[in-house]
Simulated scan of single mutants.
Amino acid sequence: MTADGLLSPAVASGFVFGLGLIFSLGPQNLTLIRAGLTRSHPFAVASTGYVSEIALVTMGIGGFGTLLTHHPTLSGILQAVCAGFLAWSGARTLHKISRTSRTQVVTAHCKSRFQAIGSMLVVTWLNPLVWLEAMFLVGVLSFSYGSEEQAGFGAGFLAASAIKFYGWSLAGVSLSRCFDHPIYRKRMDAIAGVVLILAALVLAANIMV
């Protein structure tokens, strides 16, 4: 891509759109933060998520995202599954906390590389929200720029995604000492569980409108 291409409106729009998703607190970002907090191979986890993001964006620009626009029923089903997944993730997180008493503390162990990468693969490829953002929305928005600049929109989005994946992992690592006591991780899980359930409710409300 030439220097002029890097400054094109398509690249800039893709980058800005990607930046807007950095602070969305979903299962994927939470997995990145936890990997950093527990020192569970954060770089490998971030790289796994980023490579998956490249694959999903490529699929979206390749036409899958546009296909969903012509099949609103399929799009609605995907959003409903997404809401269900978020609600399940939130309930599972809160249930894990409720199984421990107020005086009992659960020690967070560092996961093996295989377990850490597996967790990221699950919250990426089995999370409809990621498909909705990285494939459907990128595919639809890039389509408005025409075939010649679709790749530029995707490149801009992926540049912002790199900041998201590696930035959240590094943030987790930098905060790991502040969260040394397991009770703080327990409180973070409580916040995460509530946020995930609220996100599911908001998405479900949008489907019903």
Rank of each mutant, 00 (worst) to 15 (best):
L129S: 09
W125D: 06
P128V: 08
Q115T: 08
R102S: 15
Q115N: 10
C110M: 13
L126M: 11
T93Q: 02
G118A: 01
R113K: 13
C110L: 07
R102T: 08
S101Q: 10
L129G: 01
V106E: 14
V122H: 02
R113W: 08
T100W: 12
I97A: 04
L129Q: 15
N127E: 01
H95N: 12
T93R: 09
T124D: 05
V123K: 07
V105E: 13
A108H: 12
K96Q: 15
M120P: 03
S101P: 00
F114Q: 12
T93D: 04
K111G: 02
N127T: 06
R99H: 08
R113C: 14
V130Q: 13
T103K: 13
I97Q: 09
R92C: 02
V106Q: 12
H95Q: 11
L94C: 01
A116W: 09
V122C: 02
T124S: 15
A108G: 01
Q104E: 15
L94T: 01
M120D: 02
L126W: 04
K111I: 04
M120T: 02
V130S: 10
V105I: 12
I117Y: 02
T124Y: 03
R92D: 12
T93S: 08
S98L: 12
R113P: 07
R99M: 11
V122N: 08
T124R: 05
Q104P: 09
S112R: 09
K96E: 15
W125Q: 04
K96Y: 08
K111S: 11
G118F: 05
G118Q: 06
S112M: 07
L126Q: 03
V106H: 11
W125N: 12
R113V: 13
Q115R: 11
T124V: 11
L126Y: 07
C110V: 10
S119N: 13
A108W: 14
S98E: 10
L126A: 13
T93G: 00
T124E: 03
T103E: 15
K111T: 00
V123R: 03
K111M: 11
A116Q: 00
F114Y: 13
V123Q: 01
T107F: 08
R113H: 07
I117P: 10
T93E: 04
R113T: 12
V105L: 14
S101T: 11
T107E: 11
L94W: 00
V123D: 03
T103G: 13
S112Q: 09
C110W: 04
R102Q: 14
A108P: 11
I97L: 14
I117W: 04
A116E: 00
L129H: 15
R102P: 02
R99Y: 03
L121G: 03
W125E: 03
L129I: 02
W125G: 07
V130M: 09
R92F: 00
L126V: 06
F114C: 07
C110H: 07
I117G: 04
R102V: 04
S101K: 09
A108V: 06
S98G: 09
L121K: 04
I97E: 13
S98C: 05
H109M: 07
P128K: 05
L121A: 10
S98Y: 09
S119D: 12
S101Y: 01
F114R: 14
L121D: 04
R102N: 13
K111L: 15
K111D: 13
V130I: 14
L126N: 06
S101D: 11
W125K: 04
T124Q: 06
H95C: 06
V123G: 05
